[in-house]
Design a protein around this nucleic acid. Structure first.
Lengths: 334, 334
DNA sequence: CGCCTTTGGGCAAACCTTTGCCTAAACCGA
DNA sequence: TCGGTTTAGGCAAAGGTTTGCCCAAAGGCG
């Protein structure tokens, strides 16, 4: 269209606008005319046509469990920032931990020629040819890089903190089975506990149930722990929202946090610092992990890795002490 | 490709697969062959090519302030669900309330041939030809529909609740200037207050400052209110996260909520019910608003509205009483 | 047998760029 | 003057669908 106006061919225009090497055979004045006309008409190449021809779309697909949930959206914030910076845009789709939705999303992604995939807390439905980076996903598929937390370290931080305060009777709330972090973190906790000489009472282990991403599962899990009859002076939950839900259950049962029960959360979501009491928690640098994922992905898109892609990028957690933990009361039964 | 395999033309394949009217001149057996082959090869038409030809992309652009923030992502959840149901996918971009980022996003949207735009709590940078639905946006551009809360009703619910409990000295935390709801809601509050015979002490009005979407602005705003020297028995904040931040500031100042100060939030985000104390708040049906926005948009994409599009869809709030409000103490100065 | 109508589907343009290959003119040196 | 090189950009294919228009063969009717 701009070519017609100048009496040139579309080829020339394309070359100049893209700074193609072949453009060096086009004299400066002509180039300037093209540039000027492009500016004048506010010309934008049709991205669809370009993608069709070039075979890539400058788009990536992002998968997460819930679109409105603290954990994944904090990762997403990092992903977005890094992606934008690199000139990519993304499709977002949530799957609510349903395999079918993941599957559909994956086919949608290939249909629409995304250049890569970022999957947050997601188990992929099948192997994909597309460059893929996962955040907190369990399976190690061929050639895909996984950004994971150092669970070992995370568990030690929490257990050593509680153990250092004098707690021996510690209750746990595990994650849902579908959550990728649940198993590795639980392994790490068992390991850290035994290292600290703490035995894990099976009666003091509850799991989050249901697929609600809200506080309720933690609330009910804590109620089950209280009903189990075993006493405990501390509680370590799978994440912060569960912790908040659990604290409510504890309080409703007449227990004070932290005087009667210390509570340690996980993630350090934005609201953790503003809880009452402020939540002691294991901080995951979620935004950083998201940025790392996106950066790794665009790198991989630009240049496929030489031989075997690095399988894992391990991120270290921090521990944040606030008000929800203290030494156990000298004597008290739940 | 599938055409070659069957010795047919791409045209025939296209017509059959799309159930085009012209397909009726193709006999059943041939149609079956095409369908079978498509299934066998798991054939997916190239969406890029199709969009290029058809002139629409089955994609919409979604704009919001922050990707990890309770309010907008709850709306987003509704948008996503309705969009998915209608077969659309979306680009997500956050703008952090920066006009330039909104502008860039808008040009990106037209470059990529989105079929429409959903803008959540966003002031658009310029007029757009694209079908656009906004949620909680102030400006009434030609032909664009805005989903808004019934601020009048919302303010009355909160003010009448506090006034009914006996509160007369009420402090307020207004939203940031860039937030679309700030002005209309404030107008509504003044109106409701005067209707209830309550005078608004200018010293008892603070505004959220800074563009952080977290609890801090509310925390600092509450501190400024406390420092103002005027006493108050109740506080009505712009949203729940501010309320949570404010509660922390109050508590740090030695005030108990609700015994010394009642607090009413706004939105009813997921964590509101699990705060300590549980937050009394004005509930916006955010997910519903998101769904409504998306449904209205796809409708408008399918069939441009007859003449003048309805300008506004007004949604009614609910009031949720929890534990952060109670009658004021008989006598107490802050 | 000749004409008309279905039947069955092909042709090619259009959507818009990108890119490998090519060429016509000009210029330059011998 | 002639051959070679550079200049300046054009040609056309390719990427995969969609769709308006067209046509050939077959069948039906008079």
């Amino acid at each position: 269209m701009i070519a017609d106006h100048l009496g040139l061919s579309a080829a020339a225009v394309s070359r100049v606008l893209n700074g193609a090497p072949a453009a060096k055979s086009i004299p400066k004045p002509t180039q300037d005319r093209i540039l000027a006309a492009a500016k004048q008409f506010n010309y934008r190449p049709n991205v669809l046509a370009r993608s069709l021809r070039r075979g890539h779309s400058m788009t990536v697909g992002v998968l997460l469990p819930e679109v409105s949930e603290g954990y994944a959206t904090l990762v997403l914030a990092g992903v977005e920032q890094a992606l934008l910076q690199a000139g990519y845009v993304f499709y977002l789709v949530s799957h609510h931990h349903q395999a079918e939705r993941v599957e559909n999303a994956q086919t949608m992604f290939v249909e629409r020629f995304v250049d890569g995939i970022v999957a947050i807390d997601t188990v992929l439905a099948r192997h994909t040819e597309l460059p893929t980076i996962t955040v907190s996903c369990p399976d190690e598929q061929e050639g895909m890089t996984n950004i994971v937390l150092n669970h070992r370290r995370a568990a030690e931080l929490a257990i050593d903190h509680l153990s250092g305060l004098g707690h021996r009777e510690i209750a746990f709330i595990k994650g849902q089975a579908f959550s990728s972090d649940t198993e590795p973190r639980w392994q790490a906790i068992r390991h850290a506990a035994s290292r600290a000489g703490i035995t894990v009472d099976p009666l003091l282990v509850a799991s989050l149930e249901g697929d609600s991403p809200t506080h309720e599962p933690g609330y009910f899990a804590a109620q089950r722990l209280l009903a189990s009859g075993s006493s405990f002076t501390a509680l370590f939950t799978f994440n912060d929202v569960s912790a908040i839900g659990a604290i409510r259950a504890l309080r409703e049962a007449g227990l004070r946090v932290p005087q009667d029960v210390s509570v340690v959360g996980f993630d350090d979501v934005q609201s953790a610092a503003f809880q009452n009491p402020g939540l002691t928690t294991v901080r995951q640098p979620l935004k950083t992990m998201g940025m790392l994922a996106a950066e790794t992905l665009v790198q991989r898109i630009a240049a496929p890795p030489e031989h075997p892609a690095p399988k894992q990028l391990v991120i270290d957690p921090e521990f944040v002490v606030r008000e929800s933990t203290c030494p156990p009361a000298p004597r008290r039964k739940t």
